[in-house]
Design a binder for these strands. Structure first.
Length: 567
RNA sequence: CGGGGUGUGGCGCAGUCCGGUUAGCGCACUUGGUUUGGGACCAAGGGGCCGCAGGUUCAAAUCCUGCCACCCCGACCA
């Protein structure tokens, strides 16, 4: 490819709209251009590498028996009504104004289940793995970070269809392995976390995450022990409070200036951990009290999975006052004006000797015994893990990091097959719903993550195993020097015979300009060919990653390159 | 949806508070010349409905009203 004829509009300056390094570089190196918030065009240089990422996805999915589909972006609303997801998705789903019975598909579980229901009738037809690599449409409230979160985005989605839970386990495991291979081949450092299944339904679910300060998820990790978990479900080892010997009757005492746990602990010389904090939530429009240890923070995701609902919110002050007869700051499990259900964090299980609010402004109780003095409906892990706490695997400190969700694998179960009537007859002639799994990867996110992990101040640094071009030939004074032209073109055709992809900078630009552009584009090897070197029968080789530059004889250049690419 | 910010040539910005030449600068672009191994220099050019609409005024990029777009924080995120 001659660069003078290749549309690759590079930018010297960082576009004002881009914050994330990968976003900046994708714009600067001419991979993408934004067309609206969360909507991007892929330019030739970007699309070239994006297709290579897709090749990897296809190879690895084909390797586990996947079959590629091309599914429509326009879907009949009727099919989506059968799983009630038009309502569940709400504003996230794009609707059409002038064709009300169609929607833009945000994902394709329904369509897959629909096809299965039509044509899969027997356990003998299973298992199947069906996948697609296509644009999905979601009306994201706030697109951000370039292709990281868009309203139209490319997704690899696969779906497994099995006759049994055991079959699903196998399909799920196959995907897990395929995902490991995919991300390894992309050269991405990642980790896997257990995740909450959210509104998708289903049982087991894991996310493939990439540590990144711009990531929208938060995870607790310890790379040494291998512990990693989304903060939604992360746990750590913390000693429960337990019971103390001496357990007198609880007793009210005045705490006029103590509104927070810290103030209370400080003024009365108490252990923060023995103060039970009262957190009031509205769960499915019912007020509940959650007792937390000291300054532990309630984790709303854990609360939601405990109550199996996503309808939760902190109670408003007026609701609290009305129910408890006291203001926040003096709340506790005893003497509630209108008794409500009380739950407590595992660390407080059966504890005594606690201090908590007396539900009377300015007063607290001490020596509370949860076994004796109040009724706890249930204990669970409600607390948010804090960085530095002990990892449950190794006891070593946990790190809390931001992360990008690259892939997600789900055991869906029978939710969609039941809703769409995707049923089979088993060995005994008994009708059963197909057991499904769903497995997604954000294709453009892969590219963004590669660039996040492989760039420097000069530009992108592609890996030799995944790069738009293998060699970047920089012809210095190409337009003036016939000998440079001949030399460049000869090398180009020799390399192309070896099936290596070559970008030849034949533009009428000054050397410095070409060097800067080449570093920005990030092709692994630059071959710098100019009159100066050729006069001594030499060219220069620059390795983008290390920055190392070597002068080699023109007769040796091919050897160096084939060695680098192992061919 | 709440809060904040920004819209001026392809990109990055100044000018807006305090209205008044022909709207300016750097990069990019065109032509000519000199240069040519890390984003050259000189000269001459081309390119703007100053986000859109309405209003105030003799006069609006600048003041007022409404709207739109984009970015950031939050909420949300199958």
């Amino acid at each position: 490819m001659y660069q003078s004829q290749y549309f690759i509009p590079t930018l010297k300056e960082i576009p004002n709209d881009a914050q994330m390094p990968s976003h900046q570089l994708m714009l600067r190196a001419g991979l993408i251009r934004q067309i609206a918030a969360g909507v991007f065009s892929w330019l030739p240089y970007g699309y070239k590498i994006l297709k290579k990422v897709q090749d990897i996805l296809r190879e690895e999915l084909d390797a586990i028996g996947g079959q590629e589909f091309l599914l429509p972006a326009l879907n009949p609303k009727e099919i989506w009504d059968q799983t009630n997801r038009v309502e569940a998705m709400g504003d996230v789903m794009f609707h059409l104004k002038n064709r009300d019975n169609l929607i833009l598909a945000p994902t394709h579980e329904e369509i897959i289940a629909y096809h299965a229901s039509q044509s899969i009738k027997s356990y003998k037809d299973l298992p199947q793995i069906w996948y697609q690599i296509q644009n999905k449409f979601r009306n994201e409230p706030r697109p951000k970070s370039g292709v990281m979160r868009g309203r139209q985005f490319l997704m690899k989605d696969s779906y497994s269809l099995d006759a049994s839970e055991e079959g699903l386990d196998i399909s799920y495991e196959k995907h897990s392995l395929a995902y490991h291979r995919i991300f390894e081949r992309c050269g991405i450092k990642f980790f896997v976390v257990g995740a909450s299944s959210g509104a998708m339904g289903g049982s087991k679910s894991q996310e493939f995450m990439v540590e990144n300060s711009f990531g929208e998820d938060t995870c607790a990790v310890n790379y040494e022990s291998g512990y990693s978990s989304n903060m939604e479900v992360a746990v750590s080892y913390v000693q429960p409070l337990g019971r103390i010997e001496n357990s007198p009757e609880y007793e009210k005492f005045a705490t006029p200036n103590a509104k927070t746990i810290n103030e209370l602990a400080e003024q009365f010389e108490l252990e923060v951990n023995t103060c039970a904090k009262s957190v009031v939530y509205v769960v499915d429009s019912e007020l509940v009290l959650i007792l937390m240890r000291g300054n532990d923070e309630l984790n709303e995701s854990k609360l939601q999975s405990f109550f199996e609902t996503n309808q939760t919110r902190p109670a408003e002050e007026d609701e609290i006052v009305k129910c408890f007869g006291a203001n926040p700051g003096s709340l506790g499990p005893i003497n509630i004006k209108t008794p409500i259900k009380i739950y407590a964090d595992n660390l407080l299980k059966d504890a005594n000797g606690l201090v908590s609010g007396a539900n009377e402004n300015g007063f607290h109780f001490k020596s509370i015994d949860l076994l004796r003095d109040c009724k706890i409906e249930g204990y669970s892990d409600f607390r948010t893990v804090i960085a530095g706490e002990a990892d449950i695997l190794s006891g070593k400190p946990l790190k809390v990091v931001n992360a990008i969700e690259l892939g997600h694998i789900f055991k869906l179960g029978t939710k969609y097959s039941n809703a769409l009537g995707a049923k089979i007859l088993d060995e005994n002639g008994k009708e059963k719903p197909i057991v499904m799994g769903s497995y997604g990867i954000g294709v453009e996110r892969i590219l963004a993550c590669i660039i996040e992990q492989n760039h420097d101040e000069d530009g992108i640094v592609w890996d030799k195993d995944l790069t738009p071009f293998h060699i970047h030939i920089l012809g210095l004074a190409y337009d003036k020097s016939e000998i440079v032209q001949d030399s460049c073109n000869q090398l180009k055709s020799e390399l192309e015979k070896l099936r290596l992809e070559v970008l030849l900078d034949d533009r009428k630009e000054r050397p410095g300009f070409k060097f800067k552009d080449a570093d920005l584009l990030g092709i692994p090897i630059q071959v710098i060919i100019g009159d100066r070197g050729l006069s001594e029968d030499k060219v220069e080789l620059k390795f983008r990653k290390s920055g190392e530059k070597i002068e080699v004889k023109t007769t040796d250049i091919l050897n160096h390159i084939t060695k680098f690419y192992n061919i």
